[in-house]
Design a protein around this nucleic acid. Structure first.
Lengths: 198, 198
DNA sequence: CCTACCGATCGGTAGG
DNA sequence: CCTACCGATCGGTAGG
């Protein structure tokens, strides 16, 4: 029994989740009503429940599926022996930049609204995030040890990397006259040059 | 008629506002109920209204009073002829770091919850923020022109500066074994070295 | 996918 | 600062 798909080949549930991400971003999870969401999708509120289990489930989907896009990139990267630690760091940074450029709704909801997750999802999410940070730290530590990264407190550097890219939200709003590619190159240069051992 | 103050010399309204900032940070503005706030302060919900006008007013206070701490620092800095543009940038960065270290609740609520402001406050806030960004851009542009800042797209650099420091939220949670001073020096070095003309 | 509706909770007020 | 309470709105369900 094939699911009904729209022109963009999305199932009804995917349409609802994308609309939810947009609204959760704009108004916040808690301030977004199921009636707002229904209006956005073009049905009555009660009809949403034929496709989703609850409002909470929408947030879980958004947070965990987005987080997985980062974990899986890191999985591939860690096993790549052709890159040194600074190159790996740059690759992670570029992945973050591209995600912020491509799907700011998902990134903002994951970053700002995950606190609305219910247990046990909240704890799982926080643990996954902590682990991700530690893995990045390990890469940078290796870079310092091998002399490609300036001797710096790598914990601070990881926190900085994860957050510099949040400026892209602002860039999205104003668009400016600068392309996504230029933005990426500028951010990479700024950050990686701050990191590179002279 | 002197207002009643507690041991920390805070008026009742100040106590309520500080508690509100903590809750708005933890749960978000919309998910925080006046009954939650009342519980935190130790009174009944109805009693809060002897000190504040509305829930919305609490958010306005937090957002605008915090924003003003940045505008006034910038006002002083701009008229200081003894500093070059890179030194001014460093001074702004240090101010941001110290604010995130000192009052993370205010910083997080201002940054994540200002979207819940009602008009005309929302527009006023967004305009003030846009202006602040432009003033920082002007400082960095001057730095590029005078050859103290690496020739980079300064808009990107400003967005980066405003956001690198958000990592401090994470630092607060874990504490690690690194002091606020070390954190500040690390962040400043990382960012300013990325900016400085070689 | 809709109409009709539920119990719970929301921000806030009246009156003392 | 409290008790008592209001209308509105919330997420979600029943039944078709």
């Amino acid at each position: 029994m094939a699911r009904i798909r729209n022109r963009k080949n999305e199932t009804r549930k995917e349409v609802i989740t994308a609309a939810a991400a947009r609204l959760f971003r704009e108004k916040g999870f808690s301030a977004t009503g199921m009636r707002d969401l229904a209006l956005e999708v073009g049905v009555e509120a009660a009809s949403l429940y034929n496709h989703i289990r609850s409002k909470a489930e929408l947030l879980q989907d958004i947070c965990f599926r987005t987080a997985n896009l980062f974990t899986s990139q890191l999985n591939e990267l860690e096993t790549d022996a052709s890159l040194d630690a600074l190159q790996k760091t740059e690759s992670v940074l570029r992945h973050h930049i591209r995600m912020w450029v491509k799907c700011p709704d998902l990134m903002l909801v994951m970053n700002n609204e995950h606190k609305n997750l219910e247990e046990p999802y909240l704890s799982t999410f926080m643990n996954e995030r902590r682990l991700y940070v530690r893995r990045l730290e390990a890469i940078m530590d290796e870079g310092v040890k091998h002399g490609v990264v300036r001797p710096i407190e790598t914990y601070t550097a990881v926190l900085s990397l994860l957050n510099v890219v949040r400026g892209i939200e602002f860039w999205h709003r104003t668009k400016k006259n600068i392309s996504a590619e230029t933005l990426e190159e500028n951010m990479v240069k700024l950050f990686i040059e701050g990191l590179r051992k002279a």
